[in-house]
Amino acid sequence: MRNQYVDQCGGLDGSVEGRQTEALARLAEGEPRAFACVVREHQAMVYSLAVHFLRDAALAEDVAQEVFLQLYENCRAIRSADHLRSWLRKVTVHRALDCLRRKRISVPLENTPEPYSTATVGDPWLEDKLWRLVLTLPEKWRMVVILRYQEDLGYQEIAEVMKIPVNTVKSSLERALAILRKKLEHSTVGVKL
């Protein structure tokens, strides 16, 4: 896998950070293979953010594609691997929010294409129940929860990504979790809340 990556990325080698920095440098010079490397490296993060928020695989892929195309346009502004990750998160979050607002998507689960083909590790019933509850949360709260649990970001980082005050992040997360706990209490037995 590693060798394949190195081959495809034109001999990029070293640590992940080093590879990414080198890929960024090559990308700034307009090398498409470097762009492909960056896409491969970050596609899971970008796509997951979009698909978890939108719950629509096709729409999420469109958003992810547009994020990477925007990255290609702005690649000269990217200074480091950390900056790249942060930039991708910001752009994905705001594009997903815009997309949902513009389309005014109601996401009834019965009409939603199933985004996950992989087998669920946990309890499928509980997972389905959690999805239904998460989808009832307000958009920004949902995004805060996704950033917290998918990307494992702290309050400050979430605030920077979403461009909202840290206290708003804290209160949104606490209230969202309280709602999820309260609603789960009524329907779940055996889950430690």
Binding site: R40, A64, E127, Y149
Partner: peptide, 30 residues
């Protein structure tokens, strides 16, 4: 018997995009 935090982490674990995603991005770029 897992806490809510763990359930949410599991729920929001990263997923790979559908096959051919990279090629489609590059095609749009082209």
């Amino acid at each position: 018997m897992r806490p809510l935090d763990e359930e949410l982490r599991e729920l929001f674990r990263r997923k790979e995009p559908p096959a051919g995603f990279e090629e489609r991005v590059l095609a749009r770029l082209a």
